[in-house]
Design a protein around this nucleic acid. Structure first.
Lengths: 283, 283
DNA sequence: CGTTACCTTGATATCGTTCAAGTACCGTGG
DNA sequence: CCACGGTACTTGAACGATATCAAGGTAACG
């Protein structure tokens, strides 16, 4: 009904994959595991749980850029945990048109639905270099049985996926290009902050404008122009040199422009008497 | 990158809600429960499981058209089971722009994520008259514990939701209007067939063109023109009289046009030695 | 130090939107 | 049985957001 009626500093931050001399991916130096980071924000874990969590991330496999690790229609072959680097979940039409469903960041699971399904209904591939651990469905199920609190957290992760997809659908379907781009940037920034990979006013941005276009149902040229608009408006700036990053100059204005409310990203966690994360005063 | 580069008969079928003399919703006459229908297609249920399933659907509440039963940001207040009628899950921007995330048909659950979350991140409201049973989270959890096979099936329902959302995202982001509309019609037709509410070449279509537009990121006028195109092309026809329906004149051509593969709608079910539903020979 | 991938920008094309008016139909009440 | 009012559908005309095409620039990588 109502359409998208157009109305109208510092340099902290580290990339998920800091490269050694020749470009092998490693975990960010001095940063604890992203998964641990996320879980600890939601739950005061016990020593045993900590060990179990570490076990999940053992044997990370380094992956090259543009490596497809899950194929639409093929069996999953286990559940992944991202230790470093970015991946993306996408679907592609026979003629090559592609839609990015979601981005997969450090600390995220890949294919939690393998617990329920046999075959994937999407592709997953790396953006740049990445490190991914892979666990069998059996192993995850055993962990679920043994550590129900961790299982509860992981189930929250799965619902979060859903919430992000809903929000993306809203962006693609109803937000204008500038709203959608701003919203995506803010979402990524927040998610990276959760796992200690973004700074107060800067975050790594390894995505190609092409990929952003495929996530938002736009074309790369228009994403370019839209980013320029944001830059010219003094909302953001770019650090073009590796690690390529985005500098947020005016977070408030950006949030207002995007209509971004971080509520959908907030998990409630678990704990005796622990209240759901209170609604942010700032949107 | 690649953009959306464009490129009669019997009258079976019954509406999800057959109206009595004055319009109260009832279950389709002579049709067994939609939920039972879905589950039995995936699992040979025992007598006990059958009883449990029936229990889930007791005390259905009749709802008037356009009744909002879940509010974005508010607590869920339980889990719903649709006995009859259509509902829709949507998100709305402050200025009124709306995106329909998915349609909720008879036999579907509403807010299975209430098992994990406290508050909704979307609205749910009825399309026309509907009948919905509501169960507490505790009751569902008890059922999950007692009937693990049913729990497994319901978890598959949840993943199916996800698969449908991915497909919708692809439609909104990358398919042309005519592809997207065709795809949506085919999806609804298939889903209705699963629960015995659609015929071989006809299915009820209570959705307003406005609602279709909000599901596909289009405007109602364009949906109208697109439907006309499909009609003029001899692919579909309309039954304007209640129950309003769509007649599929050339399913093959429609599928080809939409690039529709039903695989994403096929659940694997459970059962000893039961193979995943084989990939459809047709596409 | 060349090659490639990505970004940038202009010109032009188009799909889809908006606005606006009119029509068909259903349910209601006399 | 018919008049009425509302909702949804229909259609035309004009506009606009975004796509496509094309060319050049710049920085990373080997």
């Amino acid at each position: 009904m109502l359409q998208r009626s157009p109305k109208r500093r510092s340099a902290e931050g580290q990339s998920g994959v800091s490269r050694g001399g020749s470009g092998e991916p490693t975990q960010p130096r001095g940063t604890r595991s992203a998964l641990l980071c996320r879980v600890q924000a939601l739950l005061a874990i016990s020593g045993e749980e900590r060990v179990a969590l570490d076990g999940l991330e053992r044997d990370g496999t380094p992956l090259l850029p543009q490596t497809k690790i899950i194929n639409d229609g093929a069996p999953y072959g286990g559940i992944g945990i991202v230790k470093a680097g970015w991946l993306l979940r996408s679907k592609t039409l026979p003629d090559g048109r592609r839609q990015v469903i979601n981005f997969v960041l450090p600390g995220d699971f890949i294919c939690l639905d393998a617990l329920t399904f046999d075959c994937a209904y999407y592709d997953v591939c790396t953006v740049g270099h990445a490190v991914v651990s892979r666990r069998s469905v059996d192993e995850i199920e055993k962990l679920y049985a043994e550590y129900p609190r961790l299982a509860a957290i992981f189930k929250q992760f799965a619902v979060l996926e859903d919430a992000m997809m809903s929000e993306r659908l809203l962006s693609v379907g109803r937000r204008t290009a500038i709203e959608a781009v701003s919203h995506l940037l803010l979402e990524l920034w927040h998610r990276l902050k959760f796992v200690g990979l973004a700074g107060e006013s800067m975050f790594p941005m390894p995505l190609t404008q092409d990929v952003i276009a495929d996530a938002l149902g736009l074309c790369a040229v228009h994403v370019n122009r839209t980013l320029k608009l944001l830059q010219n408006g003094g909302l953001i700036n770019f650090e073009h040199h590796k690690p390529r990053s985005i500098i947020v100059l005016d977070a408030q204005r950006l949030q207002r422009l995007a209509g971004f409310k971080s509520r959908y990203l907030q998990l409630k966690g678990i704990g005796v008497g622990q209240e759901p994360t209170p609604l942010q005063a700032s949107n």
